[in-house]
Nucleic acid binder design. Structure first.
Length: 334
DNA sequence: AGCCAGGACGGAT
DNA sequence: ATCCGTCCTGGC
């Protein structure tokens, strides 16, 4: 406990502005709901300011360089679909590093993806027409790296969202880097080495439970296979899933989060316990249908775009029913 | 106080 | 292929 307090008082690193980017997106593009997902549990990695519609997000460029981004809608400044980005950093950036940030943002937010393919493929389904209208142009988004999203999935396993939030906060304040830019104080994600050079016992002190072992395994794996991320991106779906599940602590649930969120495979639906309830109600009018039946219905309706349909329905529900956030905090799993 | 839910694993079937 | 006990924590 004392150690935890000690760390929380560690000084923030101040980031300074080192550049700007204007990144166009394929139309239609919804800035707000691409960068900000109402259904995601909040972390100190990012912050969306509703009033100004400014999105703040940190990024771990490498072991030394800590990045803070400030994103706004390119429509506001240039009248075009896309993102305007101000880049803050703790150290000067090379041209190549700026390119790397650009590539990361472009990939993470699917700026070059054509969302119309999804709209066309589910055009005959009335049940999600309204969600599509409300979130017109929204992309799937995963700003996390593969290592980071597998850490988050591990913390979502076998517990309530409230506990996942606590675990994430404990991990970030102990292993992450605290930064401040434009008056925003956020954390930058820890690296595999930060965890690998620590110990399972130390992780257990942070109340991540039996996951301590898995988090160590994941950190070890990424520390020893730094090119895993790039290799995975070019694999077939089956190979990617198989390779992901070879990491101890990564099972079908975490693998599917990685496949849909990180690898952006649009058909990968991912129903955990609370989503199964929601979609049971959505399809059949009651919460209690069997998980297999619910998943089968989703596949039948949405085929290759199950993951995207899931995303639109869920975000629409969370905006219409903010109390869902509270219900889910009590409910088991994400 | 004791039991239960929630993924993943490993071993048994 | 499917089933079961175990891991850990907080909520009931």
């Amino acid at each position: 406990m004392e150690r935890l307090m000690e760390h929380s008082k560690e000084q923030s690193t101040e980031l300074r502005k080192y550049g700007e980017l204007s990144l166009p997106a394929v139309s239609p593009f919804n800035f707000k709901y691409t960068v900000y997902k109402p259904s995601h549990f909040p972390t100190r990695l990012e912050e969306f300011d509703e009033a100004s519609e400014i999105f703040y997000r940190t990024y771990r460029l490498n072991k030394e360089k800590l990045i803070g981004l400030e994103m706004t809608d390119l429509q506001k400044s240039d009248g075009k679909d896309g993102l305007k980005i101000e880049i803050f950093s703790n150290k000067p950036l090379t041209e190549g590093e700026v390119k790397k940030i650009e590539a990361h943002v472009t990939y993470s937010y699917g700026l070059k993806e054509d969302i119309n393919e999804f709209y066309l493929s589910v055009a005959s389904d009335e049940s999600i027409r309204e969600a599509i209208n409300n979130f017109w142009g929204m992309r799937n988004s995963c700003f996390e790296t593969l290592f980071e999203i597998l850490n988050i999935s591990s913390m979502l396993q076998n517990t309530t969202v409230k506990r996942s939030e606590q675990m994430m906060q404990a991990m970030l304040s102990n292993f992450g880097k605290r930064v401040i830019y434009n008056g925003k104080e956020l954390f930058v994600f820890y690296t595999p080495e930060d965890i690998f050079n620590s110990s399972e016992e130390r992780l257990r002190e942070l109340k991540v439970g039996y996951r301590a072992k898995f988090l160590m395994e994941i950190a070890r794996y990424f520390s020893q296979n730094p090119d895993f991320e790039e290799k995975l991106k070019i694999m077939s779906l089956e190979d990617a899933k198989k390779n992901l599940m070879e990491i101890k602590g990564v099972g079908p649930y975490s693998a599917r989060i990685a496949l849909f969120q990180y690898l952006r495979r649009p058909h990968e639906i991912n129903f955990d316990s609370w989503k199964t309830k929601i979609f049971s109600k959505f399809f059949f009018g009651n919460e209690d249908e069997a998980a297999k039946k619910v998943e089968k219905e989703a596949k039948k309706r949405w085929g290759n775009y199950g993951g995207y349909a899931d995303l639109y329905v869920i975000e629409d529900l969370f905006v219409k029913n903010p109390e869902l956030q509270y219900w889910r905090k009590k409910c088991r799993i994400i």
